[in-house]
């Protein structure tokens, strides 16, 4: 399995990623934790809104829409 660092703005449809760390001091990031985006969580990008943002991701058996900018406090790696 190859892993490479990924930025939220580069997430594409169908891509799988894992959260490696989160900066919980940033604005909305505690809410991301509560919604299940903490280190170790793997997700797949399900949809991307026609205008490029927000995106819908599949995690912990459910789907969540978030803005790319608000996923900025997540450090992600791409999964194959």
């Amino acid at each position: 399995m190859t892993e490479k660092i990924l930025k939220a703005k580069d997430l594409k449809r169908g891509m799988k990623a894992r959260v490696v760390s989160i900066n919980e001091e940033e604005d909305v990031c505690p809410r991301l934790l509560e919604l299940g985006l903490f280190p170790g969580t793997e997700f797949q990008v399900v949809k991307i809104a026609p205008l490029g943002d927000p995106i819908e991701i599949n995690l912990h058996g459910y789907k969540l829409c978030i803005r790319r900018s608000e996923a900025g406090c997540l450090r992600l790696v791409e999964l194959d």
Binding site: L35, Y62, L64, C65, E70
Partner: peptide, 10 residues
């Protein structure tokens, strides 16, 4: 101040 987060489900 802060921008509103957009977190919702379809």
């Amino acid at each position: 101040g802060k921008r509103l987060p957009f977190m919702m489900e379809l």
